[in-house]
């Protein structure tokens, strides 16, 4: 998320940052986990603005990691858009071919913009999923950290 740090804090930008943070958590979560969390909310009816569909996004890198862009290869992506009866429109995008997941992300995005559901989605869906995602990342990071070479210890051992 560092790539898109908001430089100003208008209410609109803050709302977008909040939606993007939620989308990142949802994209990193399992479909079944999102569905189970959403079910506890009893979400309202919605219509599909964009039927969930599969497609491709060309992934880009940078020459040398920091130079001009180049095309590395494509990735499968699913997307959907929904509208709540109250008018809020949500978008769902995720890597992979899971159209249900794209639809659930779109629904969460719409609910996050709704006065009635925003707080509940944040606390009942996004926050617990974020805890799970962070725990999984922390476990990976801890296992990785154990493979860090400690040259200092080596030198001390010889001295």
């Amino acid at each position: 998320m560092a790539m898109h740090a908001e430089t100003q804090n208008s209410p609109e930008q803050a709302a977008t940052a909040r939606r993007r943070a939620a989308m990142a958590v949802l994209a990193a979560s399992e479909t079944a986990a999102i569905g189970a969390r959403l079910d506890t909310l009893a979400p309202p009816a919605f219509t599909l603005l964009r039927e969930p569909e599969q497609g491709l996004v060309m992934l880009r890198g940078r020459i040398g990691g920091d130079g001009s862009a180049f095309n590395v290869g494509e990735a499968t992506v699913s997307r959907a858009a929904v509208r709540l009866a109250s008018g809020e429109v949500g978008f769902g995008y995720t890597l992979g071919r899971d159209r249900t997941k794209a639809k659930l992300i779109a629904l969460c995005d719409a609910l996050l913009q709704s006065a009635d559901y925003s707080a509940a989605v944040e606390t009942e869906v996004i926050a617990p999923l974020q805890t799970e995602v962070e725990a999984a990342r922390a476990e990976k990071a801890a296992r990785t950290a154990a493979t860090k070479v400690d040259f200092y210890t080596l030198v001390r051992g010889e001295g």
Partner: peptide, 23 residues
């Protein structure tokens, strides 16, 4: 297989400097 799907567009260039490093 990739010829069977439409392309939505291109991603923003990834930031490998911000990689969650595993090695």
């Amino acid at each position: 297989f990739r010829a069977t799907l439409p392309r939505f567009g291109s991603s923003e260039p990834v930031d490998t400097g911000a990689m969650a490093v595993r090695r």
